[in-house]
Write a protein that binds this DNA or RNA. Structure first.
Lengths: 236, 236
DNA sequence: GCAGAAGAATTGGTCCGACCAATTTTGCCT
DNA sequence: AGGCAAAATTGGTCGGACCAATTCTTCTGC
């Protein structure tokens, strides 16, 4: 017995929940749009949503939308939210971990990116270039998130996507909380970040895993140094 | 917010399952008839059925009918566990991720292990050696977990320790569920695992991060190949 | 200018009617 | 009796339609 359309829709939604394309708390596209995107009728899409809702992964609110519950993501990430506020030194551990995580993700992306992935990456990098030219700080911050998320997606490993989506959110939360953002105001910093992002794009496009990893390492190291100039020297 | 029609239908079906009106193995009335009986449309009735089916209480067969599952126990399984069984490729992703995670942890451990860490590691490796000599399989499995955990601890990064503990548990759960454990029974395999663990110990004790990482890579690769001999060749 | 209210657009919840394919039942013919 | 094909039944899917709750826009009045 071949899988039914509802089965396939359920599986697809599960995948998107797993790899972070639908992050915790996020709102899914409207049922009509999502059904169309998945190539099924709205009734079938609704059946898939009901299944996941019954398992506590989704929750729908009339008039508003379908939202991702924190049940799945809470399991691995939520304990960190509290710990991070109470033990600021964990921020260092997170950055160190992200260096490895994103470095490997970049390498995998250079290996496995599909044409669709490359198109997506190119789209983000182009918008990033435009935002940089127009000196649109807010847009740059947003696109920075998108960029790192797109790389994780292109790595084609659910674990990387999932952790990337959740840890990045956690990290930004932590930064905002400590009023310690990147100094985008500094022109030199913004320019350096752009250079690093573009170098990353070239490495992935050229399918050079080692180069992509090293470039990402350098990028995270730069961010780390810029983020906590005081603590940087104290790193073991 | 008042309960929706689908909610009421779901509750009604639950009641009938609980009080035995729909016994185990029994066939429910046809959807059209049941929907009419409950005073809802077929689409709504179907959504209720999907919810219960997602919880494993019902199963529907096209052309035949909707049947009551034999096991009425509410699923106490974590969302992750269920996803892991339904998305086999996730196991591959997890192993790939663990390779990176544990490889880096081993390298950090070689760099940062304190005297106390080394004492702990030596204790585990000694007990592992003894279990190996006595051919105590159960003990070997247990100590294997301890060993990997001890390395993550010695890495002195909370993220590594946390993820190591949780992913390893998930992975073992998954293996047990699929009756697909390592063939400890095979003497050659047990011997190889011991050699790898010992090589890891030597690399960490010698404070050789690169060597520790490479050794761990080789170890995980060995486990991966042993674990899924069929899928191993299909890895991209 | 700007807060607030009225209106428009969006979104999930529900129903209806229809068609398909798999399955079961029926009933005819050998 | 037994085999077998037609007919009825059943779950799976689709499209359109309407409602009520929510969110987004726009216009108003101070």
């Amino acid at each position: 017995m071949p899988p039914t359309a509802a089965d396939r829709a359920t599986r697809e939604l599960e995948s998107r929940l797993l790899d972070g394309r639908y992050a915790a708390g996020a709102r899914l596209p409207a049922e009509r749009a999502l059904a169309d995107e998945l190539g099924v009728s709205r009734g079938t899409l609704r059946e898939a949503v009901q299944r996941l809702a019954a398992r506590g992964l989704l929750a729908s609110r009339v008039g508003s939308g379908v939202y991702v519950t924190d049940r799945l993501h809470g399991g691995l990430t939520s304990p960190w939210r509290q710990l991070l506020t109470e033990h600021p030194h964990l921020g260092k551990d997170m950055l160190e971990f992200r260096r490895v995580l994103e470095g490997e993700a970049a390498a995998f992306a250079a290996e496995r990116a599909t044409r669709a992935d490359l198109t997506m990456l190119r789209g983000v990098i182009d918008r990033l270039r435009r935002a940089r030219r127009d000196d649109d700080e807010a847009q740059e911050v947003l696109l920075d998130s998108l960029w790192h998320g797109a790389i994780a997606t292109a790595a084609h490993n659910a674990m990387f996507g999932y952790l990337q989506a959740n840890l990045l959110a956690l990290h930004r939360e932590h930064m905002a909380q400590n009023h310690a953002g990147l100094r985008f105001g500094d022109r030199a910093v913004a320019e350096a970040l752009w250079q690093q992002h573009f170098a990353l794009w070239e490495a992935i496009r050229a399918r050079a895993p080692e180069q992509a990893r090293d470039t990402m390492y350098a990028h995270i190291d730069f961010v780390r140094a810029r983020l906590a100039p005081d603590a940087a020297g104290a790193l073991p």
